[in-house]
Write a protein that binds this DNA or RNA. Structure first.
Length: 352
DNA sequence: AATTCGGGGGC
DNA sequence: GCCCCAGAATT
């Protein structure tokens, strides 16, 4: 399919006029257009990766209060950075943000797209966003909003990343690159939404091939997603809601966070066998089953069997540790028991 | 080019 | 229950 004849100057003017009157007022949009504070823009862009704005707002204020400057962030211990990020997900973002802050504290802020791209945690999207918003560089962003807006504008159901990138580059208003990027993303977030787009309010409606087709939500086609794996694991709760034995998680999954000692069931392994392996590793003894919690994490559905345990291992204060939602659910199991909410406290899961 | 990495919003 | 979210790193 082809786009409806699009005179670029008119289309750009229409979207920018809409943005100037209807654009969102967001806390990282302080300062002069094209000359925003790089620290504030950078933190926001990392925080908003795969995270909706409404959710990011809460974390943004907390994070900037805890780390007002890049120097403060660079000097903070990693566990404090992760604590500020707790519950936000994709924790590699926080680890990379901290690593990059140390580089910036030593060498200063990058001044252009290539410089930003070289930092850990900064990819093509974030580099283009910061370069355009903080340095006024003419770089088009390519995120989920841009993808949807352009797929619809041009009636392309299966746009590749390169195809979107080329269209975004061609459309970019080089006179106001920062405003243009924000305008496309605002349009995607508030008007050209995935499920129920508000086409009558859209400043680009006259040029939109998807609207003309009669089924705008058919563009772009849904992405194929990898299957969700069902996973079973056991955990030991040694202590109470105030202080408990916690381990630092290594590896990619929840890496850097603290959590209850936990072990996933291998293929053909039993609950009891896995529990014994876990106790053996810790030098701990297992007690009664406190219950199960279920937790879904996009690509896996976890059922965690939580046992009380005893050992001489040192306990840590729960409230000051950065924990995943899964661990908070496991600890919540203990609270519901103490409050006597369940006569037979075996299940806490919402769905099972 | 595919997978992996959290957690929740909105329908 | 499904699709998505101001993506990046790894394989």
């Amino acid at each position: 399919m082809t786009a409806i004849s699009t005179p670029l100057p008119e289309l750009r003017a229409a979207l920018l006029a809409w943005f100037d009157s209807a654009g969102r007022d967001l806390p990282w949009r302080l300062g002069t257009e094209g000359q925003r504070d790089p620290y504030r823009v950078w933190v926001a862009e990392i925080l908003l990766q795969q995270t909706q704005v409404a959710r990011g707002l809460h974390y943004y204020d907390r994070f900037l209060e805890a780390f007002p400057t890049v120097q403060a962030l660079a000097e903070a211990p990693i566990h404090e950075v992760l604590k500020a990020w707790e519950g936000c997900g994709y924790y590699a973002r926080a680890r990379n943000l901290h690593r990059a802050a140390k580089l910036i504290a030593a060498d200063g802020f990058p001044g252009n797209y290539d410089g930003w791209l070289a930092l850990p945690g900064v990819g093509p999207y974030t580099a283009a966003a910061v370069a355009s918003l903080a340095h006024g560089e003419a770089r088009a962003v390519n995120d989920g909003n841009v993808r949807r807006v352009l797929a619809r504008l041009y009636g392309q159901a299966q746009p590749t990343d390169a195809w979107i990138g080329a269209r975004a580059d061609a459309l970019l208003d080089a006179a106001r690159p920062g405003a243009w990027n924000e305008a496309v993303m605002d349009l995607g977030a508030t008007v050209c939404t995935p499920r129920a787009p508000r086409c009558p309010e859209c400043p680009l409606a006259a040029w939109c091939a998807a609207l003309a087709s009669g089924t705008p939500t058919a563009f772009p086609a849904p992405k194929v997603r990898t299957a969700v794996r069902a996973v079973e694991a056991v955990a030991l709760l040694i202590g109470d809601g105030h202080a408990a034995v916690l381990e630092r998680r290594e590896g990619k999954l929840l890496g850097g966070l603290m959590g209850l000692p936990m072990l996933e069931l291998g293929p053909d392994e039993t609950l009891q066998g896995t529990l014994e392996k876990l106790c053996c590793r810790l030098g701990a003894r297992s007690g009664e089953l406190l219950g199960q919690v279920s937790h879904s994490m996009t690509h896996r559905q976890i059922t965690l069997h939580v046992y009380a345990g005893t050992s001489d291992l040192p306990r840590q204060i729960v409230a000051t540790a950065a924990l995943s939602k899964l661990d908070h659910k496991a600890l919540g199991l203990l609270r519901t028991r103490q409050q006597g909410l369940f006569a037979e406290p075996l299940m806490q899961s919402s769905s099972v």
